[in-house]
Design a protein around this nucleic acid. Structure first.
Lengths: 202, 202
DNA sequence: AGGCTATGTTGACACTGTCAAGATAAAAAG
DNA sequence: CTTTTTATCTTGACAGTGTCAACATAGCCT
């Protein structure tokens, strides 16, 4: 495969580009990800990628879409564990969320950063995957409210925005290295979970 | 001033660059802020800025420093209002924080975004202004704990990271336009404040 | 007056995303 | 099987970026 004879037509350039992009993303971040380097990685000329992606945003959207799809699966897996108490699932979710962000900082940045969401850079394809993922946050919030873990007198959407905002904020502080150290991740997660669920059952 | 005769030496290029930068920042965002355009704004050649700033990061750091200084003043002003109850000051702080971010999204992005904090792009000068600002968050948290507004059994630093993280996260969701609408800012702030202070006095 | 230093200039380089026009091969149509 | 269409890939080009090196100017200090 690697030493396949290079023909004029690549064969599966789209996948090759996405693979190369995912690799470069994880290693060097969104900012130093250039189409030209990706083309070079794939052994193809500078403008070849334009036959598979409208522009750079479209390629980044495609990568982010996979991230959302993966994360949505993880979230559902955690949420659907019937044999675990709602409270422990909530705690697990918090830890997993921050853990995902800390483990894949560049992917997280791409998924939830301004690069794609500002100026409508996100593709419709990406939105189709991301919005259900956002929605799931509300669904879970409603469930946790019904289980008495989160206050019942708050609008589910607002509460979802706040709880998600908290996780998002902690994730960003960690990723961007702002006054938060990755060695205290678990303590921060526990603190957040405690704060949310404190005396909620009363 | 505007039609002053252009001499070889500008006179106060540093300030002129910072002013132009602040203006362009507010209008078009960090990403489309180029040194060359700033130089043009100041009526000076492309590389002149390099005699006043080591590189682009240094210039951005200088702008961010002013933002931190301003915000720190605002925070202190709110916090020091003796005639207002601690709880109402807390609520005001929450609203002001999100309000500041929503009103000056590009400045907020610069101050708390990855552009400066990643890869040690931030100048020492910036750190000197920003760290006390971060610290103040902890100071306030400790105070609110002592007033029974926030749980006393949590480490102040962790709690500060979580509460700040919440505000930061909501701010980012708003700024980046991710599943949060600016028309519901106040409701979100109230929701967050309620969640934090809920039954804390018990 | 002479020299030092701060400041400003032009030229150059290596990058970037993206468009236009032409080359090639594979697939579809005849 | 040939012809035509279409998908894919190519080189060339353009405007834009940050930044370095080398040179020019002018204000300040001795």
């Amino acid at each position: 495969m690697t030493n396949a004879v290079q023909s004029y037509h690549h064969g599966d350039l789209r996948s090759a580009l996405l693979d190369a992009a995912a690799k470069r993303l994880a290693e060097h971040g969104v900012d130093s990800l250039s189409l030209r380097k990706l083309a070079e990685d794939a052994g193809v000329s500078r403008t070849a990628p334009y036959h598979h992606f409208k522009d750079k945003s479209a390629l980044l959207s495609a990568i982010a879409a996979k991230g959302f799809s993966d994360w949505h699966s993880t979230a559902k897996r955690i949420f659907d564990q019937d044999h675990i108490s709602a409270e422990n699932r909530f705690r697990e979710f918090v830890h997993e969320y921050i853990g995902y962000a800390a483990t894949n900082p560049e992917m997280y940045e791409l998924m939830f950063g301004r690069t794609l969401w500002q100026n409508n850079a996100a593709t419709d394809d990406l939105k189709d995957v991301a919005f259900p993922c956002f929605q799931f946050q509300v669904t879970m919030t409603r469930y946790w409210q019904s289980k008495g873990l989160l206050p019942d007198n708050q609008d589910a959407l607002r509460l979802a925005q706040v709880t998600w905002g908290t996780l998002h904020g902690i994730a960003r502080l960690l990723i961007d290295g702002i006054y938060a150290d990755s060695s205290h991740i678990d303590e921060m997660c526990d603190c957040a979970a405690d704060l949310f669920m404190r005396t909620a059952k009363a």
